[in-house]
Amino acid sequence: MQLNQVIIAHKAGDTLSQQWAQKSADQLEALGCDVLMGPSGARDNPYPVFLASASQQIDCALVLGGDGTALAAARHLAPAGIPILAVNVGGHLGFLTESLEELQQQTSVWQRLLDDRFAVQRRMMLQAAVFAGNRHHLEPVSDRYLALNEMCVKPASADRMITSILEIEIDGEVVDQYQGDGLIVSTPTGSTCYTVAANGPILHPGMEAITVTPICPLSLSSRAIVLPPGCVVSIWPLADQELTTKLWMDGVLGTSIWPGHRVDIRMAECQASFIILREDYSYYKTLREKLQWAGARIRYTNNHRN
Results as ranks from 00 to 15, higher is better:
I184V: 05
E279G: 09
V212A: 04
S186H: 03
Q18N: 13
H304W: 15
L238M: 10
N303E: 12
E98P: 11
G41V: 00
A272Q: 05
R123F: 13
H304Y: 14
K290N: 06
P214F: 12
A9H: 01
R288V: 13
L183S: 04
L220K: 00
D159V: 15
Q121C: 12
L16Q: 04
C193F: 14
G65K: 06
V120T: 08
Y284E: 08
E208K: 07
D116M: 14
Q111P: 07
V63H: 01
V263H: 04
A54K: 07
N302S: 14
L146I: 01
K154N: 13
V153E: 09
P188Q: 08
V153W: 01
A30S: 08
S55G: 12
L227F: 13
I225P: 09
G172N: 07
K23Y: 05
I257K: 09
Y283S: 07
I265W: 09
Q22M: 13
N306P: 12
S53K: 00
R262T: 15
T192L: 04
P237V: 12
T15N: 10
S24N: 00
A74N: 05
E98A: 15
D250V: 10
E101C: 12
R160A: 11
E101S: 14
A25L: 03
R43H: 14
S55M: 11
K290Y: 02
W110I: 05
L253C: 10
L277R: 02
Y300C: 14
D159T: 15
T192E: 02
L146E: 10
Q56R: 13
L28A: 00
A30E: 10
R112M: 13
E139C: 11
K285G: 12
M249N: 15
I265K: 10
T69F: 03
A25H: 05
D176N: 15
A132C: 10
Q5N: 02
N303Q: 13
V130F: 07
V89K: 02
Y47I: 03
V196Q: 11
G200L: 03
D34A: 06
H76M: 05
S256N: 14
G13A: 06
L62P: 00
G172T: 14
L113W: 13
R75A: 04
A147Q: 10
R266F: 01
G68S: 06
P83I: 06
Q104R: 14
V130T: 08
A296W: 01
M125P: 07
I168E: 13
A52G: 07
L138I: 01
